[in-house]
Amino acid sequence: MSSLIPLVKNETIKIIKKKRFYVILLILLVLVPIFTYAQMRSAEHSREKFNGDWRLETQQQITDNENSLGSDRVPDEWKKFRKIIVQQLQYYLDHDVNPKEPNGVTFTREFMNNSVSLFIPLLIMAIASDIVSSERTTGTIKMLLTRPVKRWKVLLSKLITLIMFTSLIVLSTFVITYAISGLVFGYKGFDIPVFTGFQISGSDVDMSAVHAVPQWEYILMQSGLIWFVSLTVAILAFMVSVLVRSTAASIVVMMAALIAGSILTNMAAAWNSAKYLFMVNLQLTDYLSGTPAPIEGMNLTFSLIVLSIWAIAAIIVSFAVFTKRDILN
């Protein structure tokens, strides 16, 4: 009977009036300067050490990594990882490109890359974990579901609103990081070249497909992947929010899953089937930069498929449960 747009409007008003989104912006406005400052100190430090010569610094990094390869105490996994890093750094050196050129854009790229598996999901959960469970905690769900609107429409309006806000969070993270770090490192750097297309096979890097893209193009690709990961996390948190009555429980469940993911990433190389878990597939941006995947057999397509399947399953479960469940509390 009633269309979806007024329902989406309702949900949007509720999120804004609850000041959830402002809290997220506030967190960004507090944390990004801290990271920017840390980055600034480390840049100063290496400038002192290498007199501002990035070639010297990169060479030193290569030497450090190569030295550790000879040591018996370093596990094989790490050796493999470091071999790959060495090859990549060498590639940058050979092509006379500074992989860490200090500017606002590079900082933003690095920051987004590091935030994709934990920080951005955390911001998303501030909205996603609350969007259904809070209606149950406060009892307003009774008012919502006794209106002449089908239940699936109510849930769909919430999902659409969540997708809008998830996109907005990714965008705000980018804009705020760029705006703040630019103050310190300068706003230039969109057109410096970045290498992508490293194909990792075993402990070797296949350089045949490597090509330079301007940094803005790289960031665009990276943002697309981050957006995809964010949507998956948002939808999973949404499902938990449908299943669990309290917002706190819903956040804890999602946090546990994400943290388990980051722990598994560091130790699961031997457990091959862990690659089907959604939480070890969140570092999609690593495929762009050529960082080796945590488990053999993972590549960009594989991770995209795994995440899609998890997201679709979560949507099916959410709608099936929400439309059938008796509201007893």
Binding site: M1, S2, P6, L7, N10, K14, R147, P148, V149
Partner: peptide, 8 residues
């Protein structure tokens, strides 16, 4: 207003 949007 919220509940008004939910009914014709």
């Amino acid at each position: 207003e919220h509940f008004a949007r939910m009914q014709p």
